[in-house]
Each structure stands twice: as C-alpha cells, then as structure tokens.
C-alpha cells in the first residue's frame, strides 16, 4: 500500500505548471472565444464571424494558409528525414553536420524572413546571381502581388529553411530510440540499406513522424512573421489577418474570430492525424 504522500506527490509536482498553463493559455483562450461571439451592445452574436467570412481577404487568407501548409509540411518532412537518416548512419563527422543542420533553430522567424528578403527582393542576391550568370537581362520581381507563384515559392523556401531543424531534432530523437540490434539483425539477414530503411527504420520511426507532423502542421497554420517580412499583406494568411485586425484595424472581435477559426483548424488537424495515422495511446506512452 502506498503512503498518502506518495499518492499526492505527483500532483503536487504538476500543480505549478498546470496553474501556469491555465492562467496563461486556458483563460486567454476562453476570453478569445467570448470576444469572438460577444456583441458590442451585449448578448451573443455571430456577426463577427459573418463579417470575417465576407471580408475581401478572407478567401485568399484561407487559400494561402492551406496552400502553404500543403507545400511546406511535406517538404520539411522529406528534408528532415534525409538529414536525420544521414546523421543516423553515423559516418565520420556526423556530429559536425548535425550542428550545422540545427543552426536555423536559433534564428527568430522574423529575422529569417528578413534574411530571405535580402535574397528574393528585386535587387537582391538571387537576381544578382541570375544576372551575373547571364540567365536574365532584367531583375525578376519575385515578391509582387501579381507574381503569386514567386511569392509562394519564396515563403515556402524561407519557411522550409527556418523550421526544418525542429523536425530534424524530433526525428533524430526518435531514431536514437530504435535499438541498434534491429539494424544489425537486418544486416545479418542481408537487407540492403534501402530495404533496411523502408522496412525497419521507417515503421519504428512512425511515432516520431507523427509528432513531427502534428507540431509542424500547427506551426504552419500559424505561419506569420516570414510571410509578413517577404510579402506584407500581398499574401494574406489567417494568422496575419488576426494580427492586422487587432493591431492595425483595432477590431478585437474580428481578430478573435480569426483566432478561434485557427484554433478550430488546429484541433481538427490534430484529431485527424491521431485518427488517420492510428497513433494509439500505448504508443504515445512508450
């Protein structure tokens, strides 16, 4: 029989962080929900959501957010998986390369956006390189609102550059959980490196891939600073609209409506990943 202290100790240890999260996350979340459905003259209303849906930028913001999500997340997973598998092959000097791959983790998202702005702007480094190589005669305007593919690729490249490192770290941690014996067993049975990767490593890596997918999807829905640095409002996204309505247009109700929409999207995405990819509780607890 366990003593009373032992029963309550874990809860006592968890209490500070739970209080903190409650105070700074749950309460503001509820406040935002109320802001989104409260009318100025009192009572509840769906007016803010209607106004959000009929806003000129709404359908663009919606489309751009999903488009960025669909382009960025798979690219990052593939890039990070390539990096993680390379590092995990433990070639001589793999530690050095891991450090290099992890550097963008230390760059703030706005700084990363400005960094890539120096590359993609009209008289930036990409146009300089192209013109010096004689590929173009005139600088190409990548970041004009008329050049949607240009803006989109610039944002996808900058975001993939910036946030691949976090996926990499999750995957490396997952790879290190796989006992080396499994690789040796695969080698013993004559599996090539390719077959070993597909049939042994990837299935065992599934839980990490799922966490990486969930985290990256949530962050991709919130993509904001990089978009603002590269495109301003030429490329409206949902998180950016929430910010603009709050900071520039001073309409906290509409901003809250956008925030609630993002929250709902995030929740739906997480549930879909957990269901579709079949992450069972036993695996989470592993």
């Amino acid at each position: 029989m366990r003593t009373r202290t032992e029963q309550f100790l874990p809860f006592a240890l968890l209490l500070p962080s739970i209080l903190f999260l409650g105070l700074l996350i749950v309460i503001p979340m509820i406040q935002a929900l109320f802001l989104a459905i409260l009318a100025d003259e009192g009572g509840f209303t769906l007016e803010h959501f209607q106004r959000m849906a009929s806003d000129v930028n709404f359908s663009d913001a919606w489309r751009n957010t999903l488009l960025l999500l669909l382009l960025i997340v798979p690219l990052q997973i593939v890039l990070a998986l390539a990096m993680a598998l390379l590092i995990n092959s433990r070639f001589r000097g793999h530690g050095f390369f891991l450090y290099i791959y992890a550097i963008p983790l230390a760059i703030s998202d706005l700084a990363a956006g400005i960094l890539w702005l120096a590359v993609f702007t009209e008289r930036g480094y990409l146009n300089s390189a192209l013109q010096s190589a004689g590929v173009i005669q005139q600088p190409i305007i990548f970041l004009s609102f008329e050049n949607v593919p240009g803006i989109l690729s610039a944002i996808v490249i900058a975001e993939s550059w910036r946030a691949t490192a976090i996926v990499l770290l999750i995957l490396i941690a997952g790879l290190q959980l796989i006992p080396r014996d499994f690789f040796e067993a695969a080698d013993l049975f004559g599996a090539t490196r390719f077959r070993r990767t597909v049939h042994v490593v990837l299935p065992l890596l599934r839980p990490s891939l799922q966490s990486a997918l969930i985290i990256r999807t949530i962050f991709a829905l919130q993509t904001f600073a990089v978009v603002f640095a590269l495109a301003g409002r030429n490329m409206p996204v949902l998180a950016g609209e929430a910010y603009t309505w709050y900071a520039a247009n001073r309409n906290e109700h509409l901003a809250a409506a956008y925030a609630v929409l993002l929250l709902a999207l995030t929740a739906v995405a997480t549930v879909v990943y957990l269901r579709v990819l079949g992450l069972r509780e036993a695996e989470v607890q592993r």
Partner: peptide, 23 residues
Amino acid sequence: LIYGSAILLAVWVLIPFYIIAVS
C-alpha cells in the same frame, strides 16, 4: 554518396548566412 548529400544539405543551410555576412 553520403558525404555528397551531407555537404549539399549543409550548403543549403549555410548559404543565407554567407549572404548576410557578405552583405
């Protein structure tokens, strides 16, 4: 193959830093 791809990925990560340093 291993070193080639490792170096290629490292160049992709480092290029923006090079550009900003030159700048």
